[in-house]
Design a protein around this nucleic acid. Structure first.
Lengths: 131, 131
DNA sequence: CTTGATCCTCCAGTAACTGGAGATTGTAAA
DNA sequence: TTTACAATCTCCAGTTACTGGAGGATCAAG
């Protein structure tokens, strides 16, 4: 299949597929006579794997590591497990940060009574130390 | 005061202060004879405002708008309120997304029994559609 | 008079794509 | 057969919000 099809099959943009090849997540696809990339079913699976990992927030370099493990079936998966655990921790930290932001934003919004900027709790809250 | 001091006072890097000037969040600071930027107390407050807004996740362009409102004391603050509400919604969406990721990651991690890559629930979970 | 700390400007790099220009190639209808 | 249109190709610039560094001036202290 050509690039458009594998892109559609995995919910990826065509440019992104080429980008993944460029950075080595996908190996260079063989070409047709006219130079178009040709993909096999296995490539769809690999790309889907990449997309799922990215969708879970793994960085490209982490995905690279995950693919390495995946490509070596006999390999111990502890690297993958470590990656996943660390990533989970990061995600949880982000959640906490965002929840703190949320609380502050709610506080700010509550302090806004719809008057002028001087009286506005949002502007005022940002301007004073006790945000 | 010079740039190092205002930077320290607001927990900003020196380069970042210059960057904010470059993109117009701070107006060009007057210079000493030798060309060094000179700041007043009001600039500390403005920079602190910027930092707090950024810390709450507002984008630079949103901060720009918030500053505009803040700079026009008689202006109706509804633009600021709208910005804050929209931003709050974005933050909440992000929290939800991250929580979904978190659940999936926990599921993946649980499926890993520490064996080889072939049997690993992490690799397997990423490889199969039902992640 | 020489450190060492600050400051200056300019520029490149980060992450992970995304979009577009300009040129081919493939296909299908008129 | 021509003509149109879709899909592909390569290359390159732009996005966000900084961050870090090179290379060079300036300043205060000892």
């Amino acid at each position: 299949m050509q690039i458009g099809k594998i892109a559609r099959a995995t919910g990826t943009k065509v440019n992104t597929v080429r980008y993944y090849e460029e950075i080595g997540l996908l190996k260079p696809a063989p070409r047709s006579q006219s130079g178009r990339r040709i993909y096999a079913d296995a490539d769809v699976e690999r790309l889907a794997f990449i997309r799922r990992a990215r969708g879970l927030g793994f960085s490209v370099s982490e995905v690279r590591s995950l693919l390495e493990v995946s490509d070596a079936p006999n390999r111990d998966c502890k690297d993958a497990a470590t990656l996943a655990r660390n990533h989970l921790r990061r995600v949880e930290e982000q959640i906490e940060q965002l929840q703190a932001m949320r609380q502050e934003l709610i506080g700010l919004a509550r302090a806004c009574d719809g008057g002028t900027a001087t009286d506005c709790g949002i502007i005022g809250g940002l301007a004073r130390k006790s945000a």
